[in-house]
Simulated assay, not measured.
Amino acid sequence: MATRWGAVSLIVAAGIAAALQVGKAAIAAPMLRADLGLGLSAIGWLTGVFALLGLVGGIPAGALVAAIGGRRILVLGLLVTAAGSALGASAGSFAWLLVSRIVEGAGFLLITVAAPSILEHVAQRSRRDLAFALWSCFMPAGMAIAMLAGPLFDGWRDIWWASAGLALAVGIAVRCVLPPDGQRRRWSWQGLAVDATATVRAGGPLGLAAAFALYSLMFFALFGFLPVLLMERMQVTHQMAGLLSALATAANILGNLAAGLLLSRGVGRGTLLAGASLAMGVAGLGIFLPVLPDMPTFGLCVLFSAVGGLIPAVLLSSAPLAVPTAGLVPIVLGLMVQGNNLGQIAGPVAVGSAIQSHGWPAAAVIVGVAALAGMATAVTLGRALRPVSYRA
């Protein structure tokens, strides 16, 4: 079967629509602080709580994808995302805005589990690493678009309405363009328990989830607050902070694509993961500790993002290598989404609280510890993952 690149592009577009919901909270932070009087800790919760449902619902979402079908769940996720964003645009208080972010998080969860599952059916096995590398671009691409477009709106509510409309439009396109769902597994709570147990006991999937959690923690520790950091450190305008943040975020795409190329040339997965974790840790120290001038600090933000982009692409393309049986790929992806969301919650919340209490240097400690843990996890994964086809 030939790889359907049009379908791959639409799947990536669905991911970008989901990632916009993450990035909009960061770029809208100055607007939210002015309009609702929110502190950095509250902004951290708006960024982190988005991932709350993903933290506990990744494996069940994977089971739903296996039972109901990837396209159906992808469309549902986009519709839920649109509804959550519309609810947020109408919110009159921090509490309701927080609730709307949880709804958006449910949509994000469904999208990020369903979309890569569909890639298994639209991409040739020989093109799988490239397809997953393209898919892994969705987060930096969506966040970069949010950073660029956000300052062009008059207020944060307009940003929320626009992101709702985009999610709805992509959902309609997915329903019309993507091929129908193929063979599905039968849903039952007992079957879910058996599949989840088999996935966790395999070891590799748990390692992938842990590595994703550590990467996500480091990434969102910086990018959850980058516009605010740039405005305070470099004294730039909101629009310029958005432009610089978009540039730094988009650099992540370079790492995503480079991972596909390096894997195809035989570079070890553990080597890529360990090296990228080390580079993110060192760059994070230079960013958060006030030891460098403004422009070198921003250059480290770009490096942090670009090298870090290797990690999600390697991890996502490794899911088929870690499953005990081929039918459990959606469950593995769901577990990885749980890890991703754990880091997405822990990063902004921990860093936001640490910065508010102890200043920006406190974030350097969090990122440094996460980088060391990421290197240790990479060594373990390098031994566990082998470039082989699914096991029967």
Rank of each mutant, 00 (worst) to 15 (best):
T271I: 11
V388K: 15
M31Y: 05
A354M: 00
A258K: 06
A210R: 11
W161D: 11
R33L: 07
V56G: 03
P290E: 06
L278S: 11
G165F: 03
R125C: 03
P296Y: 06
A198M: 12
G150E: 01
L310I: 02
A86Q: 13
A392H: 13
L316N: 15
I159W: 12
L55I: 14
G92V: 08
G327W: 00
A322D: 10
R186L: 09
M31P: 05
M139S: 03
I345L: 15
R71I: 01
P30M: 00
L272T: 13
S317P: 04
V194T: 12
T297E: 02
A162M: 11
R185Y: 01
A193D: 10
A326Q: 06
A18I: 14
L55T: 14
A211R: 07
I172T: 10
A115C: 08
V228G: 13
F298H: 08
L321P: 09
S41Y: 00
F220V: 07
A28G: 07
G309N: 06
L78G: 06
P60M: 04
S90W: 00
V65Q: 05
P290M: 06
G69V: 06
A14V: 00
T199W: 06
L261W: 15
A306E: 01
A362H: 09
R269S: 07
L273F: 13
F132M: 15
G260S: 02
A246H: 03
L97A: 09
A326L: 08
V337S: 11
S41A: 10
M240N: 15
I287E: 07
L300E: 02
L206T: 13
S41D: 08
S136Q: 12
W135N: 12
T325K: 15
W135K: 14
R201C: 00
S216W: 05
D294G: 15
S85A: 15
L254N: 09
G57C: 04
L119K: 02
L97V: 11
G260K: 06
L10K: 01
A202Y: 03
P180Y: 05
R125I: 02
W96Q: 15
